[in-house]
């Protein structure tokens, strides 16, 4: 059984679920918010010079700082609950797939939706800027091209910085039947991040839930390189740990 077949099967399970709507709405909140907030004299003033750079930076601040982490918390919970709510784990576990294929295909689905969120968010930022230009040409959006050489690495960073957090949330989500637990853990750690940020506390570079926020704020730029390595390292460690727990479980389904 190939991982691709199982991945397709997992994607099919999300059809007609709230995951797709959540992805679109979550990705659209910041672009719509920016469109509203910059459609003013003050806003237009702020966009002078390099409108796309400012627009994308603000979009990343709201998205990576707030909406993407919350999206991941909900996404990981919903995807796991699709099995729990339908009593479907036992059917999955008694199908001819290796436990590795089952585990990693589910993990890939989570990563697929996170990438969809990030790509859609950035695409909608472009649309939002274009719409703002049509409403108010003084914003100058269509007179400048976005600096893709700078923006594309930022988009990749946004993804890498949530890798650790998404892995932990994924692991908690599939391990515990109670959906409150992954949501609670995710929310509490996000609040901890906010407290750390408020006091510029040290240690943010070691705290995986803070990485996305670190990458979204210019004030924490210095932590980014360490956060990137930390995120990948935590992801590998937690993925291995949760996979071991998944495989070694005495009771499956």
């Amino acid at each position: 059984m190939t991982l691709y077949t199982s991945f397709r099967s997992e994607i099919l399970k999300t059809k007609k679920s709230s995951v797709w709507l959540l992805t679109v709405l979550g990705a659209a909140i910041a672009p719509v918010g920016l469109l509203i907030s910059f459609n003013s004299a003050d806003g237009i003033q702020k966009l002078q010079g390099q409108p796309w750079a400012k627009y994308f930076a603000d979009g990343r601040m709201y998205s990576s700082g707030i909406f993407l982490p919350f999206f991941i918390i909900l996404l990981c919970t919903i995807c796991a609950q699709i099995e729990y709510r339908n009593n479907a784990w036992k059917q999955v576990m008694s199908s001819p797939q290796s436990f590795g294929t089952i585990f990693f295909s589910k993990f890939l689905v989570i990563q697929f939706f996170i990438l969809c969120f990030i790509i859609l968010h950035n695409a909608l930022i472009l649309v939002s800027g274009a719409v703002l230009y049509i409403i108010e040409p003084k914003t100058g959006f269509l007179n400048h091209a976005p600096d893709w050489g700078y923006l594309l690495p930022q988009i990749v960073k946004s993804y890498l910085l949530v890798l650790a957090m998404s892995t932990i949330q994924f692991g908690i989500g599939i391990r515990f039947k109670n959906f409150i637990l992954p949501i609670g853990v995710g929310f509490v750690f996000w609040v901890v991040t906010m407290i750390m940020a408020e006091h510029y506390a040290g240690g943010m570079e070691y705290f995986p839930y803070a990485y996305s926020f670190v990458g979204s704020m210019a004030d924490f730029e210095k932590f980014v390189p360490q956060a990137l390595w930390g995120s990948v390292a935590y992801a590998v460690i937690f993925l291995g740990l949760f996979f071991a727990l998944f495989t070694l479980d005495k009771e499956k389904g």
């Binding site: 099919l12 399970k13 699709i82 339908n86 009593n87 479907a88 036992k90 059917q91």
Partner: peptide, 13 residues
């Protein structure tokens, strides 16, 4: 082929 206890089907599909 197996059916163990209650139905294992996805309600939203």
């Amino acid at each position: 082929g197996s059916l163990i206890e209650n139905p294992s089907v996805y309600g939203h599909l």
